[in-house]
């Protein structure tokens, strides 16, 4: 049996999260047997043969003029058609904004179980078991699938891509049977985020500011450190609710769940709802003037002090290292 992977493209580029999903498919295929097959809805081939190097044996290209932008109904029809044809053991998606929207639609069409935002997949006694954080990371649920295919969406950055240099995937057309005239949700356009801005869920480094910043006018303190570290800016909820920062930057139970290499919490107390969103970060640094702040319980390194002194000094020190390097 094969492992099917939804290959996500935007602007004619395959997204890195799909390489992570292909990497996991290679590991599953080693345990379950069978080829790794991608399915990519697109207006034109975004260079799918190159995905051989990321582990794909074959990639099915579902080409349609409406598929340049994400087309929920069309993409769901394509992935469901591929699954019906291949009868895979599992269908993997990245838990990106696209994958999160698409996977449940495909699951409903196939009448199959879906585990979203998985952080690990394992084969136990011949069956697939998916681990996924629940209660915003306060617990881990492990689920199995009573019938095939097993559908899973994979949290960005939780899975490693593979590198198989010099390998090419066979690209084959997939006929998609969907009614383009039927009423459906259409993405009319995508308004671009500020240039160079990395979404928090995919950022390697995040510097988040909380109420300790005292006002939106002080956020440049956080922005400067983020820039020095090559990272993105995050925020606690009160800061977002007060309109100091956009919703896209909120980290926590009702914001984004992030797992960067480095998370710096500046003037954030560490309420349970905030911790839920960032506790899986690899390294956590906290700057807070209150030594009793709960954020210090999860931080790997902390500095007790006034953020307005500590953070600019840290920014300068980081810049210093980089000029030397």
């Amino acid at each position: 049996m094969s492992i099917l992977v939804f290959v996500e493209q935007r602007d004619g580029q395959v997204r890195a999260v799909s390489r992570e999903a292909l990497g996991e498919a290679v590991r599953l295929a080693a345990a379950l047997g069978g080829p790794v097959v991608g399915v990519c809805p697109a207006a034109a081939d975004p260079g799918l043969a190159a995905l051989g190097e990321a582990g794909a044996d074959r990639v099915l290209l579902a080409a349609h003029p409406d598929f340049a932008l994400y087309d929920p109904a069309g993409y769901a029809a394509a992935v469901a058609a591929a699954a019906r044809e291949l009868k895979p053991a599992a269908v993997l998606f990245a838990a990106s904004t696209m994958g999160r929207d698409l996977a449940p639609r495909v699951a409903a069409r196939l009448g199959a179980g879906l585990a979203t935002e998985c952080t690990a997949l394992a084969v136990e006694g011949g069956r697939l078991v998916a681990s996924r954080p629940v209660f915003a990371g306060k617990a881990i649920q492990r689920v199995a699938f009573p019938q095939a295919p097993a559908l899973a969406s994979l949290r960005p950055k939780a899975f490693e891509p593979v590198a198989q240099p010099g390998r090419a995937a066979a690209v084959e057309p997939l006929a998609v049977d969907f009614d383009a005239a039927a009423p459906r949700a259409r993405v009319r356009r995508v308004t671009a985020a500020a240039a160079g801005k990395v979404d928090l869920t995919e950022a390697e480094v995040i510097v988040s500011g909380g109420r300790g910043l005292k006002g939106p006018e002080h956020f440049p303190v956080v922005e400067a450190l983020a820039a020095a570290l090559g990272g993105s800016v995050g925020a606690s909820r009160p800061v977002v609710d007060a309109g100091w920062r956009p919703h896209a930057e909120q980290v926590g139970q009702t914001g984004k769940t992030v797992s960067p290499r480095l998370y710096v919490a500046v003037g954030i107390s560490g309420a349970i709802q905030h911790l839920a969103g960032m506790m899986s970060s690899r390294c956590i640094v906290a700057v807070n003037k209150d030594p009793e702040a709960p954020i210090f319980k999860v931080a790997d390194y902390g500095i007790v002090g006034d953020l307005f002194e500590v953070v600019p000094a840290l920014t300068e020190a980081v810049k210093g290292i980089q000029t030397r390097a």
Partner: peptide, 23 residues
């Protein structure tokens, strides 16, 4: 369509440390 096999608490983060006070 899904069977829950287990619910587990995540491994506790190893204790961190306060490296110092102020700048």
């Amino acid at each position: 369509a899904l069977e829950v096999v287990a619910l587990e608490l995540p491994p506790a983060r190893p204790a961190g440390r306060i490296v110092g006070q102020g700048a």
